Computed example of a mutant assay.
Amino acid sequence: MSEPIRVADFVSEAVAAHRPVVALESTIFTHGLTRPRNIDVALDVEQRLRDSGVVPATIGVIDGVPTVGLSEQQIRMLGAEDFPVVKLGIRDLPVAAAKGVHGGTTVSATALLAYRAGISVFATGGLGGVHRGATSTFDESADLVALASLPIVVVSGGVKSILDVPATLERLETLGVIVVGYRTTRFPGFYVRDSGCVVDDVDSAGQAAAVARARDGLGLRSAVLVANPVAAEDQIDPELHDRVLAEAEDAAAGAGMRGKALTPFLLEHMHRATEGRTLDTNVAVYRGNVTVAAEIAHALVVRQR
């Protein structure tokens, strides 16, 4: 059998030398962004990390092998048009290994593989959460459960507003996941800066790193979720957002959409109704989170040297 996890030499060497490393997921360019912009964004955020003195570790699955630290060639391959790539959550990894498939890793799978490789910080776009109507469907993302047992720092733009944000925060509290807003007490709703929910805040990357160190000192095993709102100029106008989301939900109900088909339907409807503005916001959210994650990674390694 092949190795269970392949860690690129440049990643393992950086971790061993206590240099700052930030993990990046692959589903954002395998399934989340349109082509060819997906590859441009994936390579751009890696370069932004290098320019800030941080080692980027994009994570995906190649021929069934979870790989931490994809090469540029591998990123281009996974993000290519019509290339057979499946979306892999944490429970899908063993099946993918047995079948030898190529895959883009979600938040849950990326967080696990980052932790196994010794990486402390992970930047993503938005976190999965509790879906609306989950009281009857029990539909919630595996991201939440994964973060309850993986002691890393995850920087995200909150959760997409198509989800049940208050229920998601309640679930995170139940699971013991530490949630803080980055320089805000308002939990972001991905496309908008304010979801209407209140959280504790940290005022700097250093303070976020201090939260992670305090967690480790207490022996806690959950993630620290740093919710970073998109820049004001990049958010969807809140009134437009609320109107378009309501229209999307009505259209989904009329079409009988439910289960796995619901989220892509809602996102596609919002993309069309905003004339692509949601995609621009998606990219802005991701880039902003990568910047904050880089600062936290630097702050975390200061004490290790």
Rank of each mutant, 00 (worst) to 15 (best):
G126S: 09
L127V: 06
G128A: 10
G129I: 03
G129V: 01
H131A: 03
H131I: 01
G133C: 03
S136H: 07
S136K: 13
F138D: 00
D139C: 13
D139R: 09
A142I: 00
A142P: 00
L144T: 01
A146Q: 14
L147Q: 11
L147I: 07
A148Y: 08
S149C: 09
S149D: 10
I152D: 01
V153I: 04
V154W: 08
G157F: 04
G158P: 06
G158N: 06
S161D: 02
S161H: 07
V165Y: 01
P166G: 08
A167C: 04
T168Q: 05
T168F: 01
E170M: 15
E170T: 15
R171A: 14
L172Q: 04
E173C: 10
L175C: 09
G176P: 09
V177G: 06
V179A: 07
V180L: 13
V180E: 08
V180K: 15
V180N: 13
G181C: 02
R186H: 15
F187L: 07
P188N: 06
F190Y: 15
Y191H: 12
Y191D: 03
Y191I: 05
V192H: 05
V192M: 07
V192W: 04
R193S: 11
R193K: 12
S195K: 11
G196W: 01
C197S: 13
C197F: 05
V198Q: 09
V198M: 08
V198N: 08
V198T: 11
V199T: 11
D201V: 13
V202E: 07
V202G: 11
S204Q: 14
G206N: 09
G206R: 11
Q207F: 12
A208Q: 08
A209N: 07
A209D: 05
A214V: 08
R215Q: 13
R215V: 06
D216Y: 10
G217L: 11
G219K: 09
L220K: 12
R221S: 14
V224S: 07
L225I: 04
L225P: 10
N228S: 09
P229Q: 03
V230F: 02
A231V: 10
A231D: 15
